[in-house]
Design a protein around this nucleic acid. Structure first.
Lengths: 330, 330
DNA sequence: CTGTTAGCGCCTTCAA
DNA sequence: TTGAAGGCGCTAACAG
């Protein structure tokens, strides 16, 4: 360079106190030389890495595709605030207490977002709550001073699904849930089912319900079990789309007609359900909204805000897997 | 600490020349204090950031879910080699020449992996080829001294799909392709279709083919167009699963029976196609293998290897959307 | 307006 | 086997 050293720093960062001409010269030369500031070195001095971790539970087999529907929105919003996203992924069982803290300090992360897929008893959720670094947890109920929580209003979602079936004349409505004992949202979805049934004065008991595992194969298995233990049902609400698809695929192979023989509502609103055969009626998690707002919650925490809880209302996507039953008038 | 400063560094990094007892003391204390080395500071001195970028094209609307099937494998393998993954995502149109270089230098990335979704004329592919930093490009044909390329053997995949239809007695086989003029793999898939048809001595012309856009809605539209311009076809090969699903969903709504009225083969082998209704016969990209090997190719480049090209054979998943036609004997 | 100095957290000579 | 010193690329405080 012609003359100077830290003037360059000021010129590039736009601090006050640089002659206009000097600044322009620097900027010009920097461009010519293809100079790119080293973000790591910067982070070293001003303790801001501009890095945010996204923690994804790593499973061997079926992935839960809904995670990936929000990842792009998450990432985009974070970028808007000048943050880059780094993926932290590991098998849930390999997690050791305080790993979260370690992971974050290692790269000087400014915050973390924990995607769904950890059981509600998993130590990472405990750690997230205590940690005094910004963390946003998706789905699983977890809040702390520096820990916000965002998810769908699951009770409302399940309530909407079942109410829609009731409005279409169904009275004996089955429910295939996920792993109730381990996953918090399953409890809430059950509550929504229960609320809708009770408000409508409809009867149900354990024979109307099967707890499954959120996989397609599990859905197929569960519908068999449900129909066996309670052949009278006319409609089933599945706690996720994958199980609903597994069940429909199985049933049609057995000669059932959907929705003529059995009405079905899924949950998640995966974008491809629109092209399912028949197009699947489902409750749509607003993944775009959740992705964006999760990022915003994290930024809020980074700026010193306190942890809080946000629920996003899901919406019913009326499609073709529910049959309208003739209403009986008393 | 009791005594010393740079001894600690040696103790933690296991360099030779530290008394056994000293080392143990240091290690012990470090654990108690919850000490975590700062990866950024490290990267500053030894010019190795341990960071790898994954570049994902950012689209507003439908995502291509197949990308996300390989991301976990990519990430897992990279981690095995001590690399972390950072997501770099932007709308393809916002890319400016040399942004790739800038992006990498900014965070001192050791390498980059470019996921599919950029058109073959996109400047990032040009940059990737020239750059003397390790880059692995998925799908789109791009190789350089420091640039490897991995993808499915697309010709073979399409060939397998069409040959399977032919073996099942089909002779008038339609083809719904993606955007032929802009995406390289579409040209290859066409070549596979052509090869299979010609080897079997079957006739086809432009009336057998529609170029579409890889979306579900596009699939529905294309099948209408195809059946209109050529009502005699008995089978259709779709260049991706999403279009096949869109088409099946549309056809069944119109009263068609699949596969009785029309046989269909998709492409991609999305894991959820197994639960489609009926389960979709498709060509499976081995996303697990591609994800893992893409990571390994990058490591190879980082270690000084030269760019090379790898093709992974796809496999036919025989399911329920192809009808066996009675063979005519001459 | 601009140059000098010090230091972020770490590793690597070089002596002791 | 260990300590001291210097520097990675950058910014901030303090002179000039």
């Amino acid at each position: 360079l012609n003359v100077s050293i830290s003037t360059v720093s000021r010129a590039l960062n736009g601090s006050y106190g640089v002659h206009k001409r000097t600044r322009e010269q620097v900027l010009q030369l920097a461009k010519e030389l293809g100079y790119v500031p080293d973000a790591n070195a910067k982070s070293l001095v001003n303790k801001k890495s501009g890095l945010v971790g996204v923690i994804i539970p790593e499973y061997d087999h079926e992935v839960r595709p809904e995670f990936f529907e929000l990842l792009p929105h998450l990432n985009k919003t974070l970028k808007l605030h000048g943050k880059n996203t780094i993926i932290l992924s590991f098998p849930p069982r390999s997690y050791q207490a305080n790993d979260l803290d370690r992971l974050m300090k290692q790269r000087n992360l400014e915050g973390c977002i924990i995607l769904p897929g950890f059981l509600e008893s998993h130590p990472i959720l405990r750690d997230a709550k205590k940690l005094n670094l910004p963390v946003v947890v998706l789905e699983e109920e977890t809040i702390g001073r520096y820990c916000s929580n965002i998810g769908t209003d699951e009770v409302e979602g399940a309530y909407k699904a079942v109410t829609y079936l009731i409005e279409n004349g169904h009275k004996r409505i089955g429910f295939v849930n996920g792993p109730y004992d381990y996953v918090h949202i399953c409890k809430e979805r059950f509550l929504g089912y229960k609320k809708a049934m009770e408000e409508a004065g409809l009867y149900f008991d354990q024979r109307f319900i099967v707890n499954s595992d959120f996989t397609g194969a599990g859905g197929a298995k569960s519908i068999q079990q449900l129909l066996k233990q309670n052949p009278s049902i006319t409609a089933v609400f599945f706690a996720n789309d994958l199980m609903a698809m597994g069940a429909i695929s199985y049933l049609c192979a057995q000669g059932y007609k959907i929705p003529e023989d059995l009405s079905i509502v899924g949950y998640d609103g995966l974008f491809m359900t629109e092209y399912y055969n028949p197009p699947l009626t489902t409750i749509q998690n607003n993944n775009q909204r959740i992705g964006i707002q999760a990022a915003e919650l994290l930024i809020e925490l980074i700026n010193g805000g306190a942890g809080r809880r946000v629920r996003v209302s899901p919406v019913l996507l009326e499609r073709k897997t529910v049959k309208r039953l003739a209403m009986e008038y008393p």
